[in-house]
Structures are given as C-alpha cells and as structure tokens.
Nucleic acid binder design. Structure first.
Lengths: 147, 147
DNA sequence: ATGGTTGCAAAATGTTTGCAATGGC
DNA sequence: GCCATTGCAAACATTTTGCAACCAT
C-alpha cells in the first residue's frame, strides 16, 4: 500500500462511519505518512508544531484511535511505558528492540506467522492482530557490555 | 521451579545485591506466588489489604522491579494501558488475549521459540526476553459476535 | 550504627473526557 | 443548520520519586 492509497482508504473509512474529513485529521495522517518507520504520539505533536495549522494532543490521540480502528496504524511496541506506533504500509513484520540504545530492528518470518495461525485454529481463536517483541541487546550494545 | 525454590532464589538475589529481606518484600512475593496465573499491580495491593502487615503501592512497584530484574516476574501482556504480570514458575509460554471478554489463553510452541533464536542469531542480537501477544476473539466471543 | 527500605504525598507520564466554541457537509 | 470535531483544561490511570522515619543486618 502506498501513501495515496492510504489516504484514499482513510477518506473512505471516514465517510462510511459518517465522520468528517477535517484539516486536523488530514494533517495528522500526512505527518504519519511522512514519518519513516516507527513513531510516538509526541513525535507527531512535535512535528506538527511548525505547520500553519494547530493540532492539539487530544486530537492526535482521537485520530490515532480512528486509524487504529481501521487498521491503518498499529501499536507495535509497548516499552518503557511508551507506545510505539507504525503505519501499515509495508507487509506485516515483528521487532527486535535493544533495551540499551533503543534501536528497533524489523524482521519477518513467514514460518512464525503460519505457526500462529495453526495455534489460533487449535483454540478456535479469531486473531485480529498480534505483536511479537524480542527485547535484548543489539550487536553493538552486546559488544560494549562485554568490555 | 516451585514456590520454595522461587523464594530461595529471591533471598539469594537479595543477598547478592546487598539488599534486605524485609517483611514487605516477603509479603509481596508470597502474594504473587499464591496468585495463580496472571496478575496486575492492583491485585497485589488489594489482596495484601487484609493482611496484618501494611504494604504501600510504592513498595509493590519497587519490589516488582527487583523481581523483574532477577527474571522471576515478567510483564507478559500490555493491553488497555495496563500491564499484566506473571511469575516464571512454569515453562515459558505466550498468550492469546480476547479483546472482548479479556480471557487469556496460554500456549507454548517450541517451533516458534526456535525460529526466534534463529532470527536473533542472524542479527547478532542477544535476546533477554520476548513477548508474543495475539489479540482477537476467543471461541465464545467469536460465536456471540456472529449472532 | 549504618545504610538500605518504607510510607506518604507529590510529581511525572501517558491518555481520556466534559464542555463550549467551531467548522464540515 | 445540524451534528461531529476541536482545543482546552481537568480528570484519570499508572508509575516514579524525594524525604524523613524506620528497620534489617
């Protein structure tokens, strides 16, 4: 999925739910689409500060809830009492998180996905989304901790 | 690992780190050991209310941090802005979480664990712990949502 | 006796909400 | 014009922290 399509999907969803396509919502979505990779609420709030339109933190949260509901944004990491989001433009993947430097490495392992499906079937569980976080030390921090 | 051993390990860790084995810490550990399955901070605080010893919420948090550091307690689920903990008495496992009724189903899939190790090796990443959460609808809630 | 620990209240975070004013459609 | 949306501040929830009194060793 690309940015244009994402925006179209958003407008479609907005219309379906009888919501409104406001300047604030557009600004927030644009900002998220321009953010490469992972982001936090503060990033969005901060980056919009320089724009000619004002968007409050509350509106960012409210818009994120819409984006989560429609599945365009996912809470991919919960770490350090923070939520890290990601826009679903790429194929699904999971994360390695370095607890020392905070680096995030993405990986995709089809075999793990398949096994998860198998497990859900076993339990007659209907999955909507999942999150696999592996915490530890990245290559560099691993080296440094051995010194 | 059983309860007795867990307690012994805790005392050992406490001694190693030059900390103190206080009544509060013992009470909290006992409470956690008696809690079957998952628990939240409020559960512990609430359950200790009836005891003859008083333990403040702050002390529960501080003790949980020690238990997390030594690996005896893990933050297994982050959902709904809440943290759900678990004591590591059983073998490692992951969770299916029903977003409607809150039911938690545990599962263990050795194959997934192996694949994770493989991935970490690939990235020269040193894992310390991981968390795999699959959110969705349990069997019962799945049925009800089809009505 | 010493130095870690506790409880308390306050503070720090992160997130949600009530309400009056505003603005899409 | 209707009704959703916004900004603001307040509320809320969770977790951390400063400090004086306390207690395990």
């Amino acid at each position: 999925m690309n940015k244009k399509l994402a925006k179209r999907e958003f407008k479609k969803y907005i219309k379906e739910k009888n919501l409104k396509f406001t300047q604030q919502r557009e600004t927030i979505l644009d900002e998220i689409l321009n953010t490469k990779g992972h982001f936090q609420v503060e990033d969005i709030v901060h980056n919009i500060k320089n724009k000619n339109i004002n968007v409050s933190r509350a509106t960012v949260y409210r818009t994120l809830n819409i984006l989560k509901d429609m599945g365009l944004v996912t809470e991919v990491i919960k770490f350090d009492n923070k939520t890290i989001y990601e826009i679903s433009l790429k194929e699904h993947h999971d994360h390695l998180i370095c607890t020392t430097c905070g680096k995030i490495i993405e990986f995709h392992e089809e075999e793990i996905e398949k096994l998860q499906d198998k497990i859900c079937k076993n339990y007659q569980f209907t999955p909507s989304f999942h999150r696999l976080e592996i915490f530890g030390l990245c290559k560099e921090c691993s080296k440094n901790s051995n010194l």
